[in-house]
Simulated assay, not measured.
Amino acid sequence: MHSPETVFGFDFGIKRIGVAMGNTMIGQASPLAVVSSVGNDARFAEIKALIDQWGPTRIVVGLPFHPDGAEHEMTARCRRFANQLHGRFNLPVVLVDERYSSAMIQAKRGEIIDDRAAAIILQQYFDEYVPQ
């Protein structure tokens, strides 16, 4: 049996990045924060503060595709973001297909849901990749 790990999940967006956290022992993801700083340095400073506070040992990033599985512009941006997370924080990064995660959230007009989308992505990781 493996030791429990704290895991962060990210829903990358151009304006905001949703962050969720959970651990492999419970296998339950929870919304944590929305990073909305302008500029890469400020965004990564916010992410670093969260990583320093919670100490995740693994990162999960949602990877968007078209419904037919084809990649699009955001797919490449998310891969780049995942590579930057790995390079900056030296943590293993797992990419998870987030194709249908947005459809699972019913948001009210103007409501920021990025952290909940990140929780759905992280929960998908727990459900599919972490043995219970």
Rank of each mutant, 00 (worst) to 15 (best):
A82E: 00
R99M: 08
E46K: 04
G87W: 03
V35C: 10
H66S: 09
Q124R: 09
I112P: 03
V35Q: 05
L85V: 12
A82C: 10
E73P: 01
D52L: 11
L95F: 09
Y125A: 02
R43H: 09
R77P: 00
R80H: 05
N90S: 13
A117N: 08
D52C: 05
G9N: 04
R79K: 13
A118H: 02
F10Q: 04
S102Q: 01
M21E: 07
G62K: 04
M104E: 15
E71D: 14
P4E: 11
S36P: 00
K108H: 15
I112L: 13
D68T: 08
G62W: 02
R58W: 07
M1E: 12
F81G: 06
G39H: 15
A42Y: 08
D11Q: 06
F81M: 03
G13L: 08
L122G: 03
A118W: 01
V38D: 10
V130N: 02
L63K: 05
L63I: 14
G27W: 05
A49K: 14
N83K: 09
S101A: 15
A70M: 06
A45F: 04
S30G: 09
V19Y: 03
I26Y: 07
V93E: 00
G13A: 06
V93S: 01
Q28M: 15
E73Q: 12
L50G: 09
V130G: 04
M25F: 15
V7W: 09
G69L: 09
M1V: 07
R88Y: 13
A107V: 07
K48R: 13
A29F: 01
F65S: 01
F12G: 00
G39C: 11
E73I: 04
T57G: 15
E73V: 08
A20F: 01
I120N: 06
